[in-house]
């Protein structure tokens, strides 16, 4: 798996061969608490960078998941729905959807793990 990149809205991205997998970070999962529902995008949907792609709902909150990278949704992780507790247990193993990138250079704008950790310390 490629090295992860991170966003300020607490998504992680792993990109390989022009396809990016996107999930939520440990920080996001901990903040949300027990996740009870995810709403995934339709494959084929075209997303703008920064656009809403999915919804994650916990017992007390619901949040949008944004895609930091523009592209077309190629695949969604339907397996998540049958075991939502995995998202809280190992968030970086749980991708929500995959996007065929329209501009792979957008990836360079995202934070490295070191940068993201520093960003979290400042919150």
């Amino acid at each position: 798996m490629a090295e992860l990149r991170f966003t300020e809205s607490h998504e992680w991205v792993s990109a390989e061969n022009g396809i990016a997998s996107i999930g939520i970070t440990r920080y996001a999962a901990d903040q949300l608490g027990d996740i009870v529902h995810v709403e995934l995008p339709q494959p084929g949907k075209k997303l703008e960078a920064g656009g809403e792609a999915a919804v994650v709902e916990s017992v007390k909150a619901a949040s949008e998941i944004y895609t930091p990278l523009a592209g077309e949704v190629t695949e969604t992780n339907r397996g998540l729905e049958s075991d939502l507790s995995r998202i809280n247990a190992e968030p970086e193993q749980c991708w929500f959807f995959r996007v065929k990138l329209s501009d792979a250079t957008q990836l360079d704008r995202l934070m490295t793990r070191q940068q993201y950790d520093d960003y979290l310390k400042g919150l």
Binding site: V36, H37, E57, S58, V59, K60, A61, A62, E64
Partner: peptide, 11 residues
């Protein structure tokens, strides 16, 4: 209740 407006606002 996460569906409701005090949490989801306009959504």
């Amino acid at each position: 209740s996460a569906r409701e407006q005090h949490i989801r606002r306009e959504k």
